[in-house]
Amino acid sequence: MIKISRRDVLKTAGTIGGALLAPGLPLWSLAEAAPREKAPAGFVNVSSALLGIDAGVLNPAIRPDDISMADVFYGLTVLAGPRSIANLLAAYDVMENQHLRPDQIAQALLVSGNGPNTSLNGAFSRLITLMWLYGTWYGHTEITNIPTSASGIAADYQKDFVISSRAYKSGWIWRVAQTHPMGFSQFSFGSWASAPPSLADYGITLA
């Protein structure tokens, strides 16, 4: 059983935390903290199915500072709901073994009738999707929309918080919108006057 504490979140996700700072270190140094969990292939694959983005694009072999956002996000789900994430990955394995297509898996995990899947598999599927999109843990949003999800999310994680500045800057919503995170542009002067890079340039396809 993994002991869950807010401090573990800080270590895992690199979120701001004065108690962890060595004197004189700037706050942003925390964003460089290495994740302690390595994401299993199933986590990356279920993320890929939910988002419609290739696993190798979501979790490239070569990444800045060798920090994998998949590892960061997986570590957070383990702290927030170890049983919930284990169950989701087991359900994913079953569907993969049934040779369901990724879009079918996403449908099964996210949708129930005309609305959202209210099971804990649905909850963690949404939380994972939102982490990749926004770099934010949406525990409060989840239980506000679907109160029964609270049973699968540890108390410390029933809140919304930006996971780290690295997670914010890595948010896929910006690439899907063919732009950059607000406040973190790697484009140059005048780039806004012409069309942005295509989705393909980000490794995203819509078909």
Partner: peptide, 24 residues
């Protein structure tokens, strides 16, 4: 975009298309 203007739940490429199509 659902039946009679109701909201939808989307994942995978359908989600990406909605996000890209509207945000841009």
């Amino acid at each position: 975009g659902g039946t009679n203007g109701s909201p939808q739940v989307l994942g995978n490429k359908s989600l990406l298309k909605a996000l890209n199509g509207y945000l841009t």
